[in-house]
Amino acid sequence: MSDPTFRAGFDLALETAINTALQYDPATRARLQPLDGRTLALDLTAPQIQCYLCLAGDRVYVRQQEDGGVTTRIGGSAISLVRLLKDPDATPAALGVSISGSSTLLAELQEILRDLDIDWEAPLAQLVGDIPAHTIGTVLRGASSWLSANLNRAPAAAAETISEEWQLTPPQAQFEAFVEDLAELSLATERLEARVHLLQAQFARREAE
């Protein structure tokens, strides 16, 4: 993206997307206003992009150059940064994200993004009307919650299928029992070894007498 035209196009698209989304979430817009004048610098490593998110009123401006002060600078892969902003249990160290400057802005943005609730039905209603938009919205919300629930259950279900159905790996309980037996055997072996050493030492002493 060395030609500034392409980069300006990317920034404009991102900025338009953010502000269009914010247009349909008045609560988030109101919460952004106290952050007016603050700048978040993003040093993305994958993909390698540097950009600045400047908060002005209830709008967000995306820039590739920023001469003014940066409030907070965060660096890491795009996926890590999204997880950091959305996942309440995520920590920067665990995700390999570096942070410099004020961490307050980051904490405030994390809180705002977690509560983000964009009313997608509003723009849809402008295109197709209220009732079709509500129907589509209900179907999409149902599909989204089904997908989200299934995605959350997916790792456990996959593990169960691999061990119970396909029997490619032992079940967890069996594996844990095996590990316990192994640990006990290991301790017993060590005790036996110590006993043998003791007996060897006693025999050696008797032979010497």
């Binding site: 035209t5 300006a8 196009g9 404009l12 820039r63 590739q64 150059q65 001469d67 003014g68």
Partner: peptide, 12 residues
């Protein structure tokens, strides 16, 4: 519009 956008950015 993109050329002008970049101009604004560099204006500081």
């Amino acid at each position: 519009r993109l050329w002008k956008r970049f101009t604004i950015e560099l204006s500081g």
